[in-house]
Simulated scan of single mutants.
Amino acid sequence: MPAMTTRSCPCGLPPSYDACCGRYHRGPAGAPTAEALMRSRYCAFVKGDVAYLMRTWHPRTRPARLDLDPSMRWTGLEILATRDGSAFHTRGTVEFRASFRGGSLHEVSRFERVEGAWVYVDGDFRD
Protein backbone atom coordinates (compact mmCIF):
# COMPACT_ATOMS: atom_id res chain seq x y z
CA MET A 1 0.00 0.00 0.00
CA PRO A 2 1.56 3.40 -0.96
CA ALA A 3 2.23 5.88 1.80
CA MET A 4 -0.11 8.87 1.93
CA THR A 5 1.58 12.22 1.65
CA THR A 6 0.37 15.22 3.58
CA ARG A 7 1.64 18.63 2.64
CA SER A 8 2.71 20.81 5.53
CA CYS A 9 1.00 24.11 6.21
CA PRO A 10 2.13 27.10 4.10
CA CYS A 11 3.22 28.77 7.37
CA GLY A 12 6.13 26.33 7.53
CA LEU A 13 4.95 24.11 10.39
CA PRO A 14 4.64 20.34 9.77
CA PRO A 15 0.87 19.84 10.24
CA SER A 16 -1.41 20.13 7.23
CA TYR A 17 -3.10 23.46 6.51
CA ASP A 18 -6.43 22.12 7.83
CA ALA A 19 -4.87 21.01 11.12
CA CYS A 20 -2.73 24.14 11.48
CA CYS A 21 -3.75 27.60 10.22
CA GLY A 22 -6.91 26.43 8.47
CA ARG A 23 -8.63 25.87 11.80
CA TYR A 24 -8.18 29.57 12.64
CA HIS A 25 -9.39 30.64 9.21
CA ARG A 26 -12.56 28.58 9.62
CA GLY A 27 -13.14 29.99 13.14
CA PRO A 28 -14.43 30.25 15.78
CA ALA A 29 -11.14 29.43 17.58
CA GLY A 30 -8.57 32.20 17.56
CA ALA A 31 -4.80 31.93 17.41
CA PRO A 32 -3.45 31.43 20.96
CA THR A 33 -0.25 33.49 20.50
CA ALA A 34 0.96 36.44 18.45
CA GLU A 35 3.24 34.10 16.48
CA ALA A 36 0.36 31.74 15.69
CA LEU A 37 -1.66 34.72 14.47
CA MET A 38 1.28 35.89 12.34
CA ARG A 39 1.56 32.43 10.78
CA SER A 40 -2.19 32.24 10.16
CA ARG A 41 -2.22 35.71 8.57
CA TYR A 42 0.64 34.70 6.27
CA CYS A 43 -1.44 31.67 5.24
CA ALA A 44 -4.41 33.95 4.65
CA PHE A 45 -2.27 35.95 2.21
CA VAL A 46 -1.23 32.68 0.52
CA LYS A 47 -4.87 31.54 0.28
CA GLY A 48 -6.31 34.98 -0.58
CA ASP A 49 -8.54 34.99 2.52
CA VAL A 50 -9.28 38.72 2.79
CA ALA A 51 -12.11 38.17 5.31
CA TYR A 52 -9.71 36.55 7.79
CA LEU A 53 -7.10 39.27 7.30
CA MET A 54 -9.68 41.97 8.00
CA ARG A 55 -11.14 40.09 10.97
CA THR A 56 -7.69 39.76 12.59
CA TRP A 57 -6.64 43.38 12.02
CA HIS A 58 -6.91 45.83 14.94
CA PRO A 59 -10.00 48.04 14.49
CA ARG A 60 -8.00 51.26 14.95
CA THR A 61 -5.50 50.43 12.16
CA ARG A 62 -7.59 48.23 9.85
CA PRO A 63 -8.05 49.69 6.35
CA ALA A 64 -11.55 50.18 4.96
CA ARG A 65 -10.80 47.55 2.33
CA LEU A 66 -7.98 45.26 1.28
CA ASP A 67 -7.27 44.32 -2.31
CA LEU A 68 -4.79 41.49 -2.75
CA ASP A 69 -2.72 41.15 -5.90
CA PRO A 70 -3.87 37.87 -7.49
CA SER A 71 -0.51 37.47 -9.23
CA MET A 72 1.45 37.51 -5.94
CA ARG A 73 2.90 34.07 -5.15
CA TRP A 74 4.10 33.67 -1.58
CA THR A 75 6.79 30.98 -1.27
CA GLY A 76 7.81 30.79 2.39
CA LEU A 77 7.75 32.21 5.89
CA GLU A 78 10.65 32.44 8.31
CA ILE A 79 10.06 33.61 11.89
CA LEU A 80 13.20 35.49 12.95
CA ALA A 81 12.25 36.56 16.49
CA THR A 82 9.30 36.90 18.84
CA ARG A 83 8.88 39.06 21.90
CA ASP A 84 6.05 38.49 24.37
CA GLY A 85 2.79 37.55 22.64
CA SER A 86 1.99 34.46 24.73
CA ALA A 87 -1.18 33.62 26.64
CA PHE A 88 0.24 35.70 29.52
CA HIS A 89 0.70 38.91 27.51
CA THR A 90 -1.53 41.60 26.05
CA ARG A 91 1.04 42.70 23.44
CA GLY A 92 3.71 41.05 21.38
CA THR A 93 5.96 41.43 18.36
CA VAL A 94 6.99 39.00 15.66
CA GLU A 95 9.89 39.61 13.30
CA PHE A 96 9.60 37.62 10.11
CA ARG A 97 10.70 37.28 6.51
CA ALA A 98 8.03 36.33 3.98
CA SER A 99 9.36 35.26 0.61
CA PHE A 100 7.56 35.65 -2.68
CA ARG A 101 8.52 35.05 -6.28
CA GLY A 102 11.06 37.74 -6.99
CA GLY A 103 11.85 38.90 -3.46
CA SER A 104 11.02 38.97 0.21
CA LEU A 105 9.42 41.17 2.84
CA HIS A 106 11.13 41.65 6.22
CA GLU A 107 8.89 43.12 8.92
CA VAL A 108 8.58 43.50 12.67
CA SER A 109 4.84 43.25 13.34
CA ARG A 110 3.02 44.42 16.46
CA PHE A 111 0.08 42.52 17.90
CA GLU A 112 -2.38 43.24 20.72
CA ARG A 113 -5.28 41.48 22.33
CA VAL A 114 -8.73 42.90 21.71
CA GLU A 115 -11.49 41.29 23.77
CA GLY A 116 -9.14 38.36 24.42
CA ALA A 117 -8.24 37.73 20.76
CA TRP A 118 -4.86 38.47 19.17
CA VAL A 119 -5.01 41.00 16.33
CA TYR A 120 -2.42 42.58 14.03
CA VAL A 121 -1.80 46.26 14.80
CA ASP A 122 0.92 47.37 12.38
CA GLY A 123 4.53 46.75 11.45
CA ASP A 124 7.86 48.26 10.49
CA PHE A 125 9.63 47.12 7.35
CA ARG A 126 13.32 46.22 7.60
CA ASP A 127 15.99 46.08 4.92
Rank of each mutant, 00 (worst) to 15 (best):
L80Q: 05
S40C: 02
R60D: 15
S8W: 09
M38H: 00
A81R: 15
A19L: 14
A3F: 15
W74Q: 05
R26Y: 08
R55P: 10
S40V: 05
E107W: 05
V114K: 01
C20D: 03
V121G: 01
P15K: 14
R113K: 11
A36P: 10
D122W: 07
A64S: 14
A36M: 10
T75K: 07
R126I: 01
S104I: 02
G76P: 06
A87Q: 14
D127M: 00
M72H: 12
T90G: 15
L105D: 11
H25R: 00
G102H: 08
A81L: 03
R91M: 12
R26F: 08
R91W: 13
P15A: 13
W57R: 04
G123P: 07
P10S: 11
H106M: 02
R73N: 08
A87F: 09
D84E: 12
T61H: 02
D69Y: 13
M72C: 09
F88T: 15
A29N: 07
A3D: 14
L68F: 06
E112Y: 11
R110E: 12
R126H: 06
T82S: 07
F100K: 07
A19T: 14
T6S: 13
R83N: 13
L66D: 11
H106I: 05
A29F: 10
L53E: 09
T56C: 00
T82A: 04
G22W: 03
A98N: 03
G48E: 00
A98H: 03
L37G: 02
M72R: 11
D18Q: 11
T6A: 13
G103K: 05
R26D: 15
A34Y: 02
R110V: 04
R62I: 02
L13N: 15
R97E: 13
W57G: 00
C21L: 09
E78Y: 06
S71V: 09
S99W: 11
G85E: 03
G48Y: 00
D49I: 02
R97Q: 12
S86K: 08
L68G: 03
G103A: 05
C21Q: 03
R26W: 08
C9W: 10
E107G: 04
H25F: 01
P70N: 02
E78M: 07
R126T: 01
T75V: 04
M54Y: 13
R110L: 11
Y17K: 10
D127A: 04
R60L: 10
H25P: 00
D127W: 00
Y42F: 14
L13P: 12
R91P: 09
L105R: 14
H89M: 11
G102P: 07
T5A: 12
E112S: 10
T75I: 04
M54D: 09
H25S: 00
D69R: 13
V94Y: 08
Y42Q: 01
T5E: 12
H106S: 06
R23Y: 08
H58C: 00
P70C: 02
P63F: 12
W57T: 09
S40T: 04
P59E: 02
F111K: 01
L13C: 12
V119C: 02
D122S: 14
G22D: 05
F125A: 12
P2D: 13
E112M: 09
G27V: 10
R110C: 06
P63Q: 06
E35L: 06
L80A: 03
S109T: 04
Y24E: 02
T56V: 01
E112H: 14
P59N: 01
K47Q: 15
R26I: 06
L53D: 08
S104V: 04
